[in-house]
């Protein structure tokens, strides 16, 4: 499955974090992460005019202690389909830093998680 955007997925012990060279989004669970990521993308205006994008999240196994790698070396990858609000007025440009814990459905962003495996 083709993705419009690829991000690295990690967990810091409290939150899931989607890492991208120009932004980070986080959430206490994956649903919240998806909502925050959608809001983040709207603000970053990375996909102007698009109402729906697919994000590929590849879990970074570096979050798992290295002694476990000899037993298993894959956690999960996911494709998430995010619905963006094209009419949203963007008040900020994001060029770095962390954007997380955004209020649910902020700016009308609706995240519909289409959880799929790796391509």
């Amino acid at each position: 499955m083709q993705a419009d955007l690829g991000v690295r997925l990690i967990h810091d012990g409290n939150c899931w974090i989607a890492c991208h060279p120009v932004f980070e989004a986080q959430g206490r669970d994956l649903s919240e992460l998806d909502l925050n990521l959608a809001g983040c993308l709207e603000r970053a205006r990375l996909f102007p005019g698009r109402t729906e994008i697919t994000v590929f999240m590849a879990f970074d196994f570096g979050c798992i202690p290295i002694w476990i790698r000899q037993y298993a070396y894959h956690y999960f990858n996911r494709h998430v389909r995010l619905t963006l609000n094209p009419g949203m007025e963007c008040s900020e440009h994001v060029s770095g830093g962390t954007i997380g814990r955004a209020p649910a459905r902020r700016g009308g962003a609706v995240a519909t998680a289409a959880v799929e495996g790796t391509p």
Binding site: M1, H74, N77, T112, A113, A114, E116, G117, T118
Partner: peptide
Amino acid sequence: QPGQSRIGPMEIWHR
């Protein structure tokens, strides 16, 4: 959750 579709079989290979 609304909007969910399918799970990719490539996960089987990775595991």
